[in-house]
Simulated assay, not measured.
Amino acid sequence: MFFVVNLIIFYKEKAAERAANKIFTNLTKRKQLGRGEFKEYEEPVALPSEIKGSLRLAKTEGNLINEHVKSLQARNILAIAGDKETRKLPKRLKRKFVDKWDIKKVTADSTRH
Rank of each mutant, 00 (worst) to 15 (best):
K100S: 06
K104N: 04
N26T: 08
I9K: 13
F3Y: 02
L27M: 11
K91E: 12
F2A: 09
F3R: 02
L27F: 04
Y11D: 08
L47H: 05
N76I: 00
M1N: 10
F38V: 05
T107P: 04
R95T: 14
N6R: 15
I9P: 01
A79L: 01
E40A: 14
I51M: 01
K52T: 05
L47G: 00
E13I: 10
K104S: 01
N26E: 09
F3S: 07
I9W: 03
V5G: 09
R18I: 07
N6S: 09
V5D: 14
A74E: 06
A46S: 14
R87E: 15
V5C: 11
F38C: 08
E67V: 10
K91A: 03
K29H: 02
L89G: 03
R75P: 04
R35N: 11
T60D: 14
T86L: 04
I51T: 02
L55K: 11
K29Q: 04
E61L: 09
A108C: 06
H68G: 02
A81I: 00
A20F: 02
G53R: 15
I8T: 05
A46D: 14
L89Y: 08
T28N: 12
K96T: 06
N66I: 11
Q32L: 02
L33E: 06
V45S: 08
N76K: 10
A16E: 04
I77A: 05
N66L: 12
K29A: 03
L47A: 07
K88W: 11
D83W: 01
G34N: 10
Q32M: 03
V106T: 02
P44H: 06
K94Y: 15
A46Q: 15
A108P: 07
P90Y: 00
W101Y: 08
L47C: 00
K94T: 12
E17D: 12
K104F: 08
K29Y: 00
L47Y: 06
E43H: 07
R75S: 14
Y11W: 02
I103Y: 15
K70L: 02
P44V: 01
F24I: 13
P48V: 14
S54I: 04
E85A: 05
A58C: 10
P44F: 06
E61S: 09
K91L: 12
N26L: 03
F10D: 02
T86E: 15
E85D: 10
F97S: 12
N63K: 10
H68I: 01
D99K: 11
M1S: 13
G82A: 06
N76G: 07
Q73T: 01
L93D: 10
K94C: 09
L72M: 01
K14D: 01
V106E: 08
